[in-house]
């Protein structure tokens, strides 16, 4: 178990968290490499199906991170995302996946250090849960042809 390195997909909104993650890089904060980032313009773009898909493909954890509530670049996108994804968390638990595999965070464009902390914390938390219980046949873990 100690050699298990979780694979985590993160959906980051362009204006806040993605910029904050860039700032973490510029400031050279080091953090574990387990998180791979997909950029979207707003956390409201996230269809719950994306998260299910990511888990089916073999992600051990999924993270969605956007602007702090009240500071969405598009006014209300992060509120919609929050409501939708809180429901999703209940659903994935019902599907037999540990709900802590799905995380949300709010990181603003000036919070580089916080992004590094979020990555460390989520990686540690998912590591403890072990590998994903459900994944498709042609999952990520299979070497590509």
């Amino acid at each position: 178990m100690s050699s298990f390195e979780p694979k985590i997909v993160a959906f980051l909104c362009n204006w806040c968290t993605y910029a904050g993650a860039d700032l973490a890089g510029t400031s050279r904060y080091q953090y574990p490499p387990n998180v791979r980032v997909i950029r979207v313009m707003c956390s409201s773009r996230i269809n719950p199906a994306f998260i299910i898909n990511a888990l089916l493909e073999g992600a051990d954890g999924v993270l969605v991170s956007g602007c702090h509530p009240g500071e969405c670049h598009y006014t209300s996108g992060n509120y919609m995302a929050r409501r939708r994804l809180v429901l999703l968390r209940r659903m994935i638990e019902y599907m037999g996946i540990h709900p802590d595999r799905f995380r949300m965070s709010w990181v603003s464009a000036s919070e580089g250090a916080k992004w590094a902390d979020v990555v460390k914390e989520v990686t540690e938390a998912v590591k403890v849960l072990g590998p994903n219980e459900i994944k498709r046949e042609q999952a990520w873990m299979q070497p590509s042809l």
């Binding site: 979207v40 898909n53 992600a59 990520w140």
Partner: peptide
């Protein structure tokens, strides 16, 4: 959706 789902499929693989 097609673009993002394809990205999800490709991003986590071991290459």
């Amino acid at each position: 959706d097609d673009q993002l789902l394809a990205v999800i499929g490709a991003i986590g693989k071991e290459y």
